[in-house]
Amino acid sequence: MGRIDYLYDSGLARITLTSSSGTNPIDQPFVDELFAAVQRAQSDDAAVVLVCSDGKAFSVGGDIKSFASAEEPGRLLDSLADQLHRSISELQRMDAIVVSQVRGTAAGAGVGLAAAADIVLSAESARFVLAYTGIGFSPDGGASLLTTTLGLHRVLHLALLNPVLTARQAQESGLVAQIHPDDDLEQATTTVVKQLLAGSRPAQAATKRLLREAALPSPETALRQETLSIRTCAESPDGREGIAAFVAKRPPSFPSVSPAARS
């Protein structure tokens, strides 16, 4: 079973994150299939791209168990982040209007993938958390780009303390555009998609390009910096301990933490 399903019909490209676990962890096949789906949406000249999920979570972020088994986690993270960032860059640069539909948890890079959309729709039960520093990593997946959406200090708070945001808090922060009862989310998404498909494609594309370039002229530079940073963290003693602790389901004991701070 694949990690990504793709369906195109009448101007709408639907990219569905799907996994047997229902949590959509991000591994190499996931990012490869995601990039292929984004390219297909470009080839189909989609007017709207919908990124959604099939399961109990939008995406729990990186597949940390695969990091634990990797001989060179830094190299693995470099490959994963680079390929994921290619998809995020394409979603942000393409003329199609991108809508994300978030159910359940969006964690780590799952937050960045949801936020790559132009319009983020959320179920009331959805939750958002970055969680990177909890395992000794720095953020990737476009999390640094959130500073233009949410503001520097709000993103620093999310990245350093890892609070779990409710859908309402995510909307108040500026990440989520609309919240709907879980049972109504699909119909609400259909309404938004129909409105976009009925609009002027040139005007929508020009508006997206204008506003995105004003907000962040060089997103690819920021994404590359994320890749280099998370690779360095993954290769560090703290990063290796964070991975091991996560897999063992125990609190991490980071080597960089002084004995006095542990007590």
Rank of each mutant, 00 (worst) to 15 (best):
D54H: 01
I179W: 06
V192L: 04
G2C: 08
A117N: 00
Q92W: 05
Q28V: 07
L197K: 12
D184S: 12
Q42V: 12
D238G: 03
L50M: 14
D63T: 05
S256T: 14
A198T: 06
M94R: 10
S87Y: 09
D45P: 02
T232C: 04
L161C: 14
R201M: 15
Q171D: 02
S218I: 09
S53H: 01
D238K: 08
A245E: 00
V192I: 02
R3G: 08
V51M: 02
G174M: 11
Q39P: 14
G142C: 00
L150R: 15
A47I: 01
G108C: 02
D44A: 08
A198G: 06
A106W: 05
G22H: 13
V60Y: 00
A41M: 08
Q195K: 03
A244I: 10
L121W: 04
Y6K: 10
R154V: 02
R224F: 15
G22S: 01
A170G: 09
R154C: 14
H153F: 12
A123T: 01
I97D: 00
L210N: 04
R224P: 08
R14Y: 13
Q83P: 08
Q83E: 02
M1S: 06
R231D: 06
A198W: 10
E124C: 11
S263I: 13
S200C: 08
P255Q: 15
A215C: 03
R154T: 09
A13N: 02
I88A: 12
T105W: 07
D95Q: 11
E241C: 06
P73I: 01
I119K: 05
A57K: 00
S236V: 01
A46V: 00
A107V: 13
S218L: 13
A245D: 01
H153L: 07
G11L: 07
V51I: 09
L196V: 11
E90F: 08
V48R: 02
S218P: 09
S19D: 11
F137P: 13
R250V: 03
T232Y: 12
L158M: 07
L223C: 03
A244D: 02
D82G: 09
G11V: 02
T133I: 03
D95R: 04
V164P: 11
P217L: 04
L91S: 08
T221V: 15
S43Q: 03
A123R: 00
S21I: 01
C233T: 10
S258M: 09
I119S: 02
H180Q: 15
A116Q: 14
A116W: 01
G2L: 06
F246S: 01
S122D: 12
L211F: 10
R209S: 10
T207M: 04
